[in-house]
């Protein structure tokens, strides 16, 4: 009895999954595998690679034994650390901005809540480059910000091409990635639980720490990871708002592939970036309680 239905289901499953599997195999798994291989090959003289094992692309960043062309240079470590610092700052700022906003939205009457949610989601669909450009208008030396400061009689702020400008740009672009998971968690929070906590004599702060924070923690973690990953690997924001002054891993990778033509080094950097992201995702999956496990 067991065979007939399951055989039919297996065939349907295989048929439905075949296109996506082929797509991912050809244009995702294989390219990543090739890049992994490239990252340990010798850079060619005029771009490309030579098929010889050569681990110094990693050595250049991590400080392993020196190769002939590549030398360990602390500047790469600094770039990595700067990327990490700016990404973490972005995470913290977006979290602080979005968390109260999520509560605000969740307490609105239904019709207005739908409207506000729509308004918050809409910029998510706006072109990234346009949104970065808006901040170029504001932050450039003759920009809106300095015009306003001038009107107020304050000294001009030289923010363009600084780390601050990059963080502002990253925050603006990634705001929805923080807001949406946070809002989902806040909305799921049953107001009766907060009332119960107050009823049991808990103060506002105690209630926040013991009830609200733990129950919205999955949303916080999800938002942080969704913001951190693109912030860490970003190069567009840094190249437009940070210029040559603020170089991040993303810019370094771009440079290796399009300007310096040192593909193995670029590939090694990309692999390091990927490894960092994978570690984060594994942490997320492991730390998030299984839906059934909660009960």
């Amino acid at each position: 009895m067991s065979g007939a239905l399951s055989a039919r289901r297996r065939r349907a499953l295989a048929g439905l999954l075949a296109p996506h599997s082929l797509l991912l195999a050809a244009f995702f798994v294989v390219p990543l595998a090739i890049m992994a291989v490239y990252s340990v090959l010798t850079p060619g003289l005029y771009g490309g690679v030579e098929w010889e094992f050569y681990p110094y692309g990693y050595g250049r960043v991590l400080g392993a034994p020196l190769g002939e062309v590549e030398e360990f240079d602390p500047v790469y470590g600094e770039i990595l650390l700067r990327s990490l610092r700016l990404a973490l700052t972005t995470v913290v700022v977006t979290l602080l901005l979005c968390y109260p906003a999520a509560f605000w939205v969740s307490r609105l009457p239904p019709r207005r809540r739908a409207l506000v949610l729509f308004l918050v989601t809409l910029p998510f669909f706006a072109n990234l480059i346009v949104r970065v450009y808006a901040w170029m208008l504001i932050l450039r030396p003759t920009g809106v910000l300095n015009q306003l400061l001038g009107l107020a009689g304050l000294p001009a702020a030289d923010l363009m091409f600084s780390e601050t400008a990059v963080v502002i740009g990253l925050c603006y672009v990634l705001l929805p990635f923080m807001f949406l998971p946070l809002y989902a968690a806040v909305e799921r929070l049953d107001p009766a639980l907060v009332q119960a906590s107050r009823d049991l004599g808990a103060g506002a702060l105690f209630t926040f720490r013991r009830v609200i924070l733990p129950l919205t923690a999955p949303g916080i973690l999800g938002g942080c990871i969704l913001v951190f990953i693109p912030a860490f690997g970003n190069f567009v924001v840094a190249s437009l708002l940070g210029g040559a002054k603020v170089m991040l891993v993303g810019n370094l990778i771009e440079q290796q592939f399009l300007a310096a033509r040192n593909w193995p080094f670029g590939a090694a950097l990309a692999m390091l970036l990927l490894a960092a992201v994978l570690v984060l995702l594994v942490v997320y999956v492991v730390r998030t309680p299984h839906p059934e496990g909660v009960r």
Partner: peptide
């Protein structure tokens, strides 16, 4: 496992996918 594979192209930094595809297409 397959579900994780499906989500990967969305969550990984796009620059990694970009350079991997560049290497692949040129190769």
């Amino acid at each position: 496992l397959y579900q994780a594979l499906l989500v990967m192209p969305m969550v990984m930094p796009d620059i990694v996918l970009g350079v991997a595809l560049l290497v692949f297409f040129v190769g």
